[in-house]
Nucleic acid binder design. Structure first.
Lengths: 187, 187, 187, 187
DNA sequence: GATGAATGAGTATTCATTCAT
DNA sequence: TATGAATGAATACTCATTCAT
């Protein structure tokens, strides 16, 4: 395959549809969903899935990369919109809110540091950088405690997502996450 | 199995040994470990595993119930030893510390509320009650914020475990968990 | 599995039946026959084949080893029955005659020297030794040319089998093989 | 494909290139090489391979026919150059020597008589005729035993190739083949 | 009760072949 | 015509579950 040539329109469409199916399947049912099942739900043959993603791991990674890419872009936007650290908490809450609907985000964050390909590592780094920038501004503004770093914040976000997932209160969405995030405030 | 008749001594011993093997296997390698493998490690045939646990799910639940039972007992001890809410944070930190070594604890807590059998639900309730008692005392003593309930605390503990698992600092074990737990302190 | 304990009677029977099916399938259709097909023909599930032969290569080797073992035993008998080199040509002709019916024998000889397990190598060596003994006696008796060794003879036998396979004359079975074997006579 | 119309120049060129790739691939790696792989190595799409060779078997046959055609041409040259049967053994030795480098020749000879198309059968016949001519002259000259026919000789050649392949002595290439060919000499 | 052999549906992956672009 | 994407049957192998010994 000549990777410099753009993919044929129908192929690209199929690739997107498979990715979409996989994203949902992995998010709601976990990574154990079989490729045959994903093919079936997408409405293509198993061979088509394999053409686009030579091994299951490749599909998992593609889903992950897609997610990380989106997050990194959101983070960069937040940096551009930021005024004196004001974007920090809203960004985190947005992240958590999104994760409530799409469970795979937590997986993306959780696995971001491990066993991944070059592309994925680069995207994770992009995200980390924007994260760090937002954090630094909030710390300068004195709203966030000084003894945490970007990785800590990422861990806390993951923690908040986890908490939210297991203590979802339909009446007050995001409440428990907000409680957890409180730990980042200056004392 | 006729549950009214006590099990033969050797049968009970086998059941315990299988449970022990499964606990360790699930904790270190995840639920994907095969029953044949658990049988092999225990030194029994696969048929024996099936006799005690008719389906894999039954074994998973038994491991979970075992874990929850242990936690509930620990919690009750903490209640008995408590002096003016003093046992609250040490108990949580103990929980988190233990979870660092044994991954299945997080799963136990996370799944405690869902899809489980009568026995498991009862044990989860026992745990919840002791938890609530510890929390109430700490809130009366004024060390824990008043706007959280026992379920919130459980979610925060799960959050702290998650954070700790993804931000493990060998030099300062428990640091990020402590940061997260800070959110429970009165403001 | 405790390999010191004899296999259960029914298991041994199944193992033999699978081996038998595989022998015939490999001999008549080549190694490309699928394990599922062999299972089907034997009347067992694919899992049963896998229990006895963990990978396809293991089954191929088992078939091969079986064959080599039989050949080695035949060769040793020929050595015991030999009188002044008299057993040499009859043994070779017997080999070739058998190979006419069972094609896998040629494969067994051909692959005997390569890529094989300890067991297989040992059996191949046993065969070679008996072969060499028969050859030495025939050479001493002056019926076989002195400038060939046991490996040469094996190659010539393989050659004769090949020739026989492609020049099978139903009226005079073994004729072309006999012609080829003539090259071993003293000039 | 309309065989009455000459192929377009570029199409013919593609056909040749695919054939060339297949020849090398089959010779060095066996028939298991996939058509996609052959397409890739040739630098065309899999559809193009299929256009020229509707099924894999057709490609295999084409390679075979190509080989047989070449052999027949060599044989005819040998006949033209022959002086009183002098070309017989050199031709056979040349064949065997070539087969040492290119494994597919043995396959070509071995399969020449079976399951093949009209074209292939005709080429095989051409080869057989030239073979027979060489043999007749050598028999007239009294160097080759009278009780073998052209098909016998072909079988012996195949046998010698097989022997050579399994008893290759790097120090004396062709030795075992020469030993086998000895069986054709008059006694 | 225990054993471990057998079952068979299920998994990831490959590849000859078809067909839309 | 050429391309390469899609198809889907097939392959080797796994494993929860059943059942004869």
């Amino acid at each position: 395959m000549d990777s410099r040539r753009p993919m044929r329109a129908d192929a690209r469409r199929n690739r997107e549809r498979i990715l979409q199916t996989a994203r949902e399947a992995f998010a709601t049912e976990g990574l154990a969903v079989s490729l045959d099942e994903i093919a079936r739900r997408t409405g293509v043959g198993p061979g088509t899935v394999h053409r686009h993603f030579p091994a299951k791991e490749a599909l998992v990674e593609a889903v992950l990369a897609d997610r990380l890419g989106g997050l990194a872009e959101q983070a960069r936007q937040a940096v551009r919109a930021d005024q004196g650290g004001s974007a920090f908490f809203p960004f985190l809450l947005g992240l958590i809110g999104e994760a409530r609907a799409k469970q795979d985000l937590a997986d993306a964050l959780a696995r971001a540091e491990v066993d991944l390909s070059e592309l994925t590592r680069r995207l994770a780094l992009d995200l980390r950088r924007a994260f760090a920038e937002l954090l630094a501004r909030a710390q300068e503004a004195g709203t966030v405690r000084a003894d945490v770093d970007a990785e800590d914040v990422q861990a806390v976000v993951l923690a908040a997502i986890t908490a939210e997932r297991h203590r979802a209160d339909p009446e007050r969405p995001g409440r428990i996450a907000a409680v957890v995030l409180d730990c980042l405030l200056v004392a």
